[in-house]
Amino acid sequence: MKTASLLSCRLIFRSMLAAIVFTNLCVAAEPSKTPPDLTQDRAVDRELTYNLGATGLRGWIYSKPATYFDGLQGRTTAASRQILVTHVGAKSPADGVLQVDDVILGVDGKLFSEDARKSFALAIQNAEKESSGGVLKVTRWRAGKTEDVQLKLRVLGTYSATAPYDCPKSKKIFEEACVALEKESLPANWHGAISGLALLATGDDAYRPRLKKLAQEIAANALKSERIGMGSWESSYRGLFLG
């Protein structure tokens, strides 16, 4: 009986300790700071930017998670309401419409009222529908003046309910991505492993010689990779490719 009671006490103590730790993580996590007004202050780290999809833009987006758990689950841009343009691709849909240091305040005639990154992504999806004709409406701030402008994107259709399976739009994007990957090198690291998996998924025998060479290079260095810390991510991607 004493042993059972002692075991019960230990279990209760551990449960209480876990609850305290969980509560501290939720409550004591550093709260989200107020995002900067990018129309007033554009002194940000421009090495940390986001690819803004088919627009040809890259932009800085406020990325401070509200809580520790938000950070773990990728909700890092939830507080953002603006996007600072840091790069405009030549001959891209944004070329001639937006420029570096412009600030995107919203889409479709409305200011961002929630996560700017996700809102912009959804607006791109909507613009690519046949019914939208590829028109992406953006609210642009430039040198003190705010106005609505339009970017003309390619019409790619709508994602099916089962995307990426049985989805013409997903299939088209994947095929074009593979054409782009054909021109890229396949290094024997996690970058090459991910690209290799994409090419492998096509089932196209034309890629076999390159993929065989990549597999041999990755396998030759398999025992040299780190097995702890972030090195395990590297090993995982390479292992997936070899598997």
Rank of each mutant, 00 (worst) to 15 (best):
A4D: 08
L7R: 15
C9Q: 13
I12Y: 12
F13G: 01
F13L: 15
R14A: 11
R14H: 07
S15F: 12
L17Q: 12
L17S: 10
A18M: 14
A19M: 14
I20K: 05
F22S: 07
N24D: 06
L25A: 03
V27T: 10
A28E: 08
E30Q: 14
P31Q: 01
S32L: 04
K33N: 11
P35V: 00
D37S: 06
D37Q: 01
T39G: 01
R42A: 15
V44A: 00
V44W: 00
D45W: 01
E47P: 00
E47Y: 03
Y50W: 13
Y50R: 09
N51P: 06
G53F: 05
A54E: 10
A54V: 08
R58P: 00
R58Y: 06
K64M: 13
P65G: 03
T67I: 08
F69N: 04
F69P: 01
D70E: 15
D70P: 08
D70F: 09
L72Q: 14
Q73W: 09
G74K: 07
T77V: 04
R81L: 12
R81M: 08
I83P: 01
I83R: 04
T86V: 13
G89D: 06
K91M: 02
A94F: 03
D95G: 02
D95K: 02
L98A: 03
Q99K: 14
Q99W: 04
D102G: 04
L105Q: 07
V107G: 05
D108T: 13
G109T: 04
D115N: 15
K118S: 14
S119G: 12
F120A: 10
A121K: 14
I124V: 12
N126Y: 11
A127D: 11
E128S: 12
E130H: 14
S131C: 00
S132G: 10
S132I: 10
G134K: 05
G134V: 05
W141I: 01
W141T: 00
A143F: 00
A143C: 03
A143Y: 01
G144R: 04
G144E: 09
K145R: 12
Y159D: 13
S160N: 06
A161D: 14
T162Y: 05
Y165H: 11
D166E: 13
S170I: 05
I173S: 11
I173T: 10
I173K: 14
F174Q: 05
E175T: 11
E176V: 03
C178Q: 10
L186F: 05
H191M: 06
H191A: 02
G192K: 12
G192R: 05
A193G: 10
A193L: 12
G196K: 02
L199P: 09
T202Y: 10
G203K: 06
A206T: 10
Y207E: 08
R208Y: 14
K213M: 00
K213W: 00
K213G: 01
L214E: 01
A215K: 03
I218P: 02
I218Q: 09
A219G: 03
N221Q: 15
S225V: 11
S225Q: 07
R227M: 01
R227A: 00
M230L: 13
M230Q: 08
G231M: 10
W233D: 12
S235F: 08
Y237V: 06
G239M: 05
L240D: 15
G243F: 13
